[in-house]
Design a protein around this nucleic acid. Sequence first.
DNA 1: ATGATACCATAGACACGTCTATGGAAGTCC
DNA 2: GGACTTCCATAGACGTGTCTATGGTATCAT
Lengths: 186, 186
Amino acid sequence: MEKAEKRDAASREDWLAAALKVIHERGVESVKVVALARTLGLTSGSFYWHFKNIQDLLDSVLEYWENHLTSHIIEDARAFEGPPADRILALMKQVVREGAAVPDSSIAVWAKSDAAADAAYKRTIRRRFMFAAWMFRELGLEAEEAAARGRLMVTALMGEAANDIRSDPEWERIIEHQWEILVGRQ
Amino acid sequence: MEKAEKRDAASREDWLAAALKVIHERGVESVKVVALARTLGLTSGSFYWHFKNIQDLLDSVLEYWENHLTSHIIEDARAFEGPPADRILALMKQVVREGAAVPDSSIAVWAKSDAAADAAYKRTIRRRFMFAAWMFRELGLEAEEAAARGRLMVTALMGEAANDIRSDPEWERIIEHQWEILVGRQ
DNA sequence: ATGATACCATAGACACGTCTATGGAAGTCC
DNA sequence: GGACTTCCATAGACGTGTCTATGGTATCAT
């Protein structure tokens, strides 16, 4: 029983990871069960054992995205040992390095036509804004200024992700310069 | 002949506008000729008179997007009469107000699986970066600093668009605060 | 009025995708 | 070793979407 659940969860997650990959590469509408099955070396019969239907898969993917691509970065930054300003730079680099904001564009598009996706997206953005504001308050800034800078950082990183900054060999210097402006000599 | 070409172009543009709307609301993969025809009160027979096939439509939509949603904003900003700092704020507000960066997410996703879309997207981003850098140089900043700030502005606006800042009643104050940070007392 | 052109409707062949029904293999439990 | 559970394959019904073939109508020039 234990073993069985373990194997089930693993296989289920394979489908989720494959679906998320398709979503961020080609959009939600490109998630097709036969195509997913082919990439996993399975058939659609397996899919319908793990999921009720496609909507069921998509709902699960949302949860998967929320937990795997935002939460752990916040946790890492919270556990960061060092000056507040360095924490901000470390987070910015981690976001770019891991491509954490890469699927955002796809989820944003998805959110426009799906209520559950919209809720998950808004919830995630809010978390990012709140956490970013906290990081800037730690710098000694007052609440409103910290919120503005935090928001600017988050939205800029999302824009950079959409712009595929990772493929730019100089991305580290670019990020560092933006960090200087954000943390900046006020 | 003249008249006929005019009518042709108008109807063609109807299809393009409808397609772009679908793209930014549900993604490229959701562009279906029968669905488009229904919203236009036509049938697929009409579609295949104007376009060779779906790919032909999508290629044309790219061109349409590039010209209608980036170019005219740059032109407006270039023609702006007033201090350089005010020009920047005016552009930022216009981008948000017109939702000029709204379809960006959809195009970004599209670009990942289509070479032509990728080229158009990269070209557009580059144009935005270059123009933004120019605006900041007009402030009296040296080249590298201006480029960094301009890029930060552009990516942040793209992130805000993905985040649907327009629906926030306080968006004008948020933008103004970000503008202050960007133009900032350095 | 006759022909040419632009524009659109209709019908259907064809491909692709979803989901159900059914059964089979492998491990688990008693 | 028989019953049960988990996981997947196969086959096919069914729906949806693409694209072609064909013809109809309105407009315009001659």
